[in-house]
Amino acid sequence: MTAAAGGDAPVLRVESLTKAYRAPDGEVTPVLDIPSFELGAGEQVALRGASGSGKTTLLHIIAGILTPDHGRVLIDGTDITALGEADRDALRAERIGYVFQTFNLLQGYSALENVLLGMMFGRGSDATAAAALLTRVGLGGRLHYLPRQLSVGQQQRVAVARALAGRPRLVLADEPTGNLDARHGAEALTLIREVCHEQGAALLLVSHDPAVLGQFDRVDDLATLNRVLSAPAEVR
């Protein structure tokens, strides 16, 4: 999976991607139909998408959590749709960081352990690096706090640190400010962008919040990107 990992090769390349959901009664609902999408190394892109636009499904496919029906997804030149599940897991652990709207911190684990979990399935645990990352996001004094002992803003900062802990090439952020108020949302967004920049990770952020989208130089609209959404019969 090292092919085409050169400097100007795209970190993410999506080709002719389609995905549909099949209900138990056999009804097929198309969700995604994206002819092409690209993200350069270290680039930061916002994707405008309302809820129900298939944005989470798209991020899951890019992360290798879901598989598309057709098309290819290349991470650093590796087509993850051609990989088996275990290889996709390994690639996700090594190359992709994920920031969720609901943070998805593990409640039984301290802030430090949550960050360590972001490392251990990939390049391996490094407690010093994990602590440094938490210090970088302003939680140096909260290493051993459990998520419930932290404010929501602090929890999202732990989640950001965890997403970057494995030194990923690509960070996927799904409405990362959706559960935060305006001030904390703005802080979290700035933090994500800064840390991705510092670590040299590309960022693909999905949001429907104009205040968030306005921060990015490049904003793509999922409504135009995803051909499912342009067909009136398939409005969901």
Binding site: A63, I65, E85, A86, D89, A90, R92, A93, E94, Y98, N104, L106, Q107, G108, L117, G118, F121, G122, R162, G166
Partner: peptide
């Protein structure tokens, strides 16, 4: 949910 998160962080099924 905990298992799903672990998987999302790159843990394998196994």
């Amino acid at each position: 949910r905990e298992f799903a998160i672990l998987r999302a962080l790159g843990a394998r099924r196994r």
